[in-house]
């Protein structure tokens, strides 16, 4: 198990990636000129309750290990904010893009 609580390095998803029994909500933050790095990405459950936060990689990648359900991902960046929703039915990779404006 992890003995810390900090987020692991945020890496890009690989199409067809095997997540085992993990429900992975992952994707990219984009801005006006493509991928936007360094945004703070928050995972909120269907009630809007905060579940987790990571800082996107320089390439805009983020990743959460969630549970099945409806999720909202919200990105905060000095250039603006953005959000998107994703439905994660079960284990596997659930991809979502967040456009920041």
């Amino acid at each position: 198990m992890s003995d810390g609580c900090g987020a692991p390095e945020q890496t890009a998803v690989v199409t067809g990636e095997d997540t085992g029994d993990q429900v992975v909500v992952a994707g990219k933050v984009t801005g006006g000129e493509g991928a936007l790095g360094g945004a703070y990405v928050r995972l909120l459950n269907a009630d809007g309750e905060f579940a987790g936060e990571v800082q996107a990689s320089p390439e805009g990648d983020f990743r959460f290990y969630a549970a099945p359900g409806e999720w909202k991902v919200r990105a905060l960046h000095r250039s603006g904010n953005g959000e998107a929703t994703v439905a994660a039915a079960g284990p596997g990779l659930h991809q979502v893009t967040i456009a920041v404006a």
């Binding site: 692991p8 579940a51 987790g52 990571v54 290990y65």
Partner: peptide
Amino acid sequence: RSPDEFSGKLLAPAHLPQESAQ
């Protein structure tokens, strides 16, 4: 902790792999 950790649904925060023996 988050409601899902409190209830027992998750064993760690959602930015970490859900691996735990507890």
